[in-house]
Nucleic acid binder design. Structure first.
Lengths: 222, 222
DNA sequence: TTTAATTTTAATGCGTTGTTAATTAAGGAT
DNA sequence: ATCCTTAATTAACAACGCATTAAAATTAAA
């Protein structure tokens, strides 16, 4: 699950990154407001953690710009107690949650889980297709009524494919959804995980579109 | 997917072309602003990557002229950090995204994908004609209800012809859509693929217009 | 620390695909 | 009718993309 952290404080940022990675997030950490603004135009994060107090650009501007682009990604705002204008705490700010510094890492994580859950809950209760039931909330898969144990990466790949049923998903796009920008995957990791998925489920479930990507088809034949 | 790169720096351009081709784009590279302006009046691209700092013509003028012609092609602008007038960063410039030099090739590619995605997301209509159903999203062809397996090049050629039903498409134009300008195809590749298409579908489907090109006719006779 | 599980890397093999090139057929022009 | 040009057909070959496997590296768990 991809997460963007915008935090200029080195020490705090470092700790957050470590903690969030431990929670299983693929974290991109930016210390620069303008870069963050740019990064968000790519729009491929599931969560954003945003410090309002940045040196080069007001965090609120980033948030405003984000919402102006109709980007609904859940945003958690970090602020120091005395720098929060009251209006910010209102609903119109566009943020989904606030944490006041100093805070406990555990609390942030719990709130993030809640955010993610709430966000999934709206749009994707569970996806069902060809005998597969995928429940994002519990992170579990059922295939023809039987539980199937998937590793994290396998789950993420399947999720991505299943939320794009009928559309070809390029390998690059899959990689984007699994990793953060700068992490270089120069090998065939995705292929390998696809292979494991086919093994655990049905080989014909995921169709290869040579030179293009992978797809889970709509139709019932294969 | 055709992409126009306008970049005067030889070294940078060379690298970009290589990288973009690797991503599967058919890249046309122009180092000259005026030529680019002309090219954009004639050709149509799915993406444009534009360096603002050109020797003979301001990149912004190209962009302005493009938008003045109601051309909505997504444009990614490349700029050096200190040469970006602030106004350029505003929404009114007409660009869809910016990248500040120096940049990572990976980032540019990721952003381009995002641009293309945003742009195409609206409508991916399937084309239907004479019993053939072509679905770009799933990359599949049906002929009289039966699935037909096509290779990538075959698929691309058929796509191009089917989105130009009733119009003759010259071989040069087909080659352009499959390859970039300067990539040399000195043989009859297109003919060969046309041949395979006719074999897999109906020989009479694609009519040869001698000395001109190929066409899929409107009418029901052949 | 040891063990197990997960993830990544790397190497291999195979089938598909794109391209080339040579030959045959067809269409126009003289 | 013949010649010349253009297109169709076929086969051969090289290159590529993907699947698969095993092993290494990393991470989590005991």
């Amino acid at each position: 699950m991809r997460l963007l952290l915008v935090e200029d404080d080195e020490i705090l940022g470092d700790g957050l990154v470590a903690g969030l990675k431990m929670e299983g997030y693929a974290v991109d950490w930016l210390t620069n407001g303008k870069l963050a603004d740019e990064a968000l135009k790519i729009n491929s994060y599931e969560l954003i953690v945003l410090d309002l107090n940045l040196p080069d650009m007001d965090g609120m501007d980033i948030l405003r710009a984000l919402r102006a682009r109709k980007d609904e990604t859940p945003v958690m705002v970090l602020t120091a107690k005395d720098t929060v204008p009251d209006r910010v705490l209102g609903l119109d700010s566009g943020a989904d949650d606030f944490v006041i510094k100093p805070f406990e890492l555990d609390e942030v994580c719990a709130r993030l889980r809640a955010l993610a859950r709430r966000n999934e809950g709206r749009s994707v209760p569970h996806i069902e297709h060809k005998g597969i039931i995928l429940e994002p909330a519990s992170h579990q898969i059922t295939y023809h009524g039987e539980k199937v144990e998937l590793s994290q990466k396998e789950f993420e790949i399947l999720s991505f494919l299943m939320s794009n049923i009928g559309r070809v998903v390029s390998r690059a796009r899959l990689e984007e959804s699994l990793y953060s920008w700068n992490s270089d995957i120069e090998s065939n990791t995705v292929e390998v995980h696809i292979h494991y998925l086919r093994k655990k489920l049905e080989p014909s479930l995921i169709r290869t579109v040579r030179g293009v990507g992978y797809i889970i088809d709509n139709d019932d034949d294969a």
